[in-house]
């Protein structure tokens, strides 16, 4: 049962590989970026998973309640930062794709390569 009990980690691995697969196989640059986002989301999942403490609640200290079990707040904070980084990356990626579309007229990787081949 222990293997199944770690289902969150299994999900992490599956999502990570799905994203990587998309990045590698897709020729469309937007799809590549989507794949990249999925890839990053997997890591978010990993961090969220590891902060959870069994039976833990939100880490808010209350008067009169002793010995409360808290989940670890730090990974959540970290992952907030990572999400911001991820968004910036995606935004910049999309901006580059727009410029590729402007100068090449296509966002298919192999077509872009062919267009440059003549240069």
């Amino acid at each position: 049962m222990e293997l199944l009990g770690l289902y969150n980690y299994w999900a992490f691995a599956v999502v990570l590989m799905t994203g990587l697969y998309a990045v590698i196989t897709k020729g469309n640059l937007i799809k590549k970026l989507i794949g990249l986002s999925i890839f990053q989301s997997a890591v978010f999942l990993l961090y969220i998973t590891m902060n959870k403490v069994d039976g833990g609640t939100a880490p808010i200290v209350q008067k009169g309640v002793a010995d409360q079990v808290f989940s670890n707040p730090l990974p959540q904070v970290l992952i907030l930062t990572a999400i911001v980084v991820g968004i910036s990356t995606t935004a910049l990626g999309l901006a580059i794709v727009i410029r590729i579309k402007e100068s090449y007229g296509t966002i298919e990787e192999h077509e872009v390569q062919n267009l440059d081949h003549d240069l």
């Binding site: 590549k32 910049l92 580059i96 590729i100 100068s103 440059d116």
Partner: peptide
């Protein structure tokens, strides 16, 4: 040609 190159770098 810098654009596909930088896209690759970004990925």
């Amino acid at each position: 040609r810098v654009l596909p190159a930088v896209f690759k770098y970004l990925i």
